[in-house]
Design a protein around this nucleic acid. Structure first.
Lengths: 198, 198
DNA sequence: TCCATTATGTAGCGAGTGCTACAATACTTG
DNA sequence: CAAGTATTGTAGCACTCGCTACATAATGGA
């Protein structure tokens, strides 16, 4: 029917869409193939085995993430670290980001277990996010490199606590951080905006 | 041979030991049963089905975690938030804690996916850890509640970055935080001590 | 002791797993 | 067109999955 030949490149986008929506843990060949409009037979043919399929898929997902970050670079810089943090928090809470975040924790878990390909992909994504965050730091920041790493650590902790129902814990913790030392009103508002859980 | 009858209570410790070592993701009935010295048949008999087995198991694991935290309460309080942070970081890096941490990320991933029982267990553990951390804050801290939540957020971010090979990122970020504003020497040393990865 | 309840073993079912053998097609190159 | 290679379909294998039917043993109360 379709003269379009299959290849890793044409398959990966559809496979990625499937795992972003249904997760990596229970991902088996036949459902993956169905989502890509093929058969398990062809997935093995094009990728060799499942392990390299998952590795390639993770690498591709990391690439998607990188592209999304580059598309999200804003020309206007925030004035304070606090405002910078509020921006990335807002970005992480976009609806389109939710499915990706769910997948992210599976990647972290896989990296912790040492599953092949997981740690590399997670490393790539964090490296990219760090580089992106450095470009988004306030212009007059005394230590953009250190500050970006500080905000990144706080952000990841905040996101994790949010997924396990402790968004409130993170929110109150941030109010006790130096991000809220002098001008606390803005951050408090931004933090409360997305605090659905707990 | 053994007059000891099996029950949830006698099974859970052995099941917990197995999942702490081998994870939750690939945990299927027959390996679990083997680790507990029984058959899959009996696991279903005592727990009804696998879903409630996992839920009960997660609850039990959360109980273990709570007990471990209570056993780790030190009578001597740290003098600064920085020292407090260094203590809990050291604790999280104990060898006995590593297997548990690996399991933890699986629990977070399950909570993010909405798997039954995962979010509840994760919530319990974070609540307990927060309460424990409040008891370990410096006596003269101006805001122990907020400070504990702040340190908790930083800690979880630090642990996550560590598992994906970005321990260095977290370390350098903490040096740019208010924890290192005046007296940075101690924290730098403690942070470097466990920085195996990246 | 008899009986009812509880606990355990054996065997297997239907579905799903990753993967392969074999054959058929499509495409490219001579 | 012929030949060879790249791609795809069909069927199936050996295995594991959660779970169940059925029978047997152990236990405890009458």
């Amino acid at each position: 029917m379709q003269t379009n030949r299959l290849s890793r490149e044409t398959l990966l986008p559809m496979l990625a869409a499937h795992v972003i929506q249904h997760g990596l843990g229970g991902a088996s060949l036949r459902p993956l193939a169905k989502a890509a409009g093929t058969s398990d037979r062809m997935l093995i043919y094009h990728f060799g085995n499942k392990e390299t399929l998952i590795s390639d898929l993770l690498e591709y997902v990391a690439g998607i993430y990188s592209a999304a970050l580059e598309a999200a670079i804003e020309e206007s810089r925030p004035k304070t670290r606090q405002e910078c943090f509020a921006r990335i928090l807002t970005q992480a809470r976009e609806p389109a980001m939710q499915a990706f975040l769910v997948l992210w924790w599976e990647i972290v878990a896989g990296a912790a277990r040492g599953l092949p390909g997981y740690k590399k992909a997670a490393d790539q994504m964090m490296t990219k996010q760090l580089a992106w965050l450095e470009t988004q730091m306030p212009q007059d920041d005394p230590d953009p490199a250190g500050g970006a790493r500080y905000l990144m650590t706080l952000m990841e902790g905040t996101l994790m606590l949010g997924t396990v129902g402790h968004a409130r814990t993170a929110r109150e913790g941030l109010l006790a951080s130096d991000l809220s030392s002098e001008n606390s009103s803005d951050l408090a508002g931004d933090l409360a905006a997305g605090g659905a859980g707990d």
